[in-house]
């Protein structure tokens, strides 16, 4: 048990450090890499909670796909960061005030009548060896949460439509491929057989 706790604290510390670094480092590429580190630590903590499927998904989808895409965008675009930092000092007092208020509120909730203490929640029983996290999630997703699951799919569809509708422009005079014409092309459209006399080898 003590080993598990040590692992938990180690990953938690790394995650907090990474999360703070994301917003403090100057180089956006480093920021993205720190975000990857934060996700990775979170995945490790989920593993400790026996949420194996979610941990793997977090790494595969977020680290593997989303963050790599993010990294590409950050590296491709030459973003000038100076304008973002403008007015930092001017807005600082307001920002500090809001942050302080939020922090005080959070602490009030956290300390209220031991709502979040470790003594409030019993240690969850360890599941047996043949327990499958993936199967449980799948069954819930396709039974209890069928409607939300489908609606989430519709939302993704709308996102695709919106992205295409906002960016697709058909401008005249641009040379583009026409896949259906390419597929429908026949041999005699591109190959022409020409009859010609065979050349006689020059006698040496």
């Amino acid at each position: 048990m003590i080993v598990q706790e040590l692992i938990f604290y180690a990953f938690s510390l790394v995650m907090i450090f990474a999360a703070v670094s994301v917003i403090t480092v100057r180089n956006p590429v480093y920021a993205v890499l720190f975000l990857v580190l934060a996700f990775f630590s979170a995945a490790a903590i989920w593993l400790l909670l026996e949420a194996e499927f979610l941990a793997i998904i977090l790494i595969v989808v977020y680290v593997g796909a989303v963050m790599v895409l993010f990294l590409f965008v950050v590296m491709m675009l030459d973003i000038n960061l100076v304008p973002f930092k403008e007015g930092f000092i001017r807005y600082l007092p307001v920002a500090v005030l809001v942050a302080l208020a939020m922090a005080v509120e959070l602490l009030m909730v956290l300390w209220a009548r031991g709502r979040f203490g470790a003594d409030m929640f019993p240690v969850p029983p360890l599941s047996s060896a043949d327990y499958s996290n993936t199967r449980e999630l799948g069954q819930l997703l396709y039974s209890n949460y069928l409607l939300p699951f489908e609606v989430a799919g519709v939302i993704l569809l709308v996102a695709i439509i919106a992205a295409v509708a906002l960016t697709l422009r058909t401008r005249p005079g641009i040379r583009t491929q026409n896949p259906s014409a390419q597929v429908r092309t026949r041999r005699d459209e591109s190959v022409r057989l020409v009859k010609m006399k065979s050349e006689k080898p020059r006698s040496v």
Binding site: I155, V158, A159, A162
Partner: peptide
């Protein structure tokens, strides 16, 4: 809410 919002943003 999100379905309305996303469609309306576009």
């Amino acid at each position: 809410l999100e379905l309305i919002a996303l469609s309306v943003y576009a």
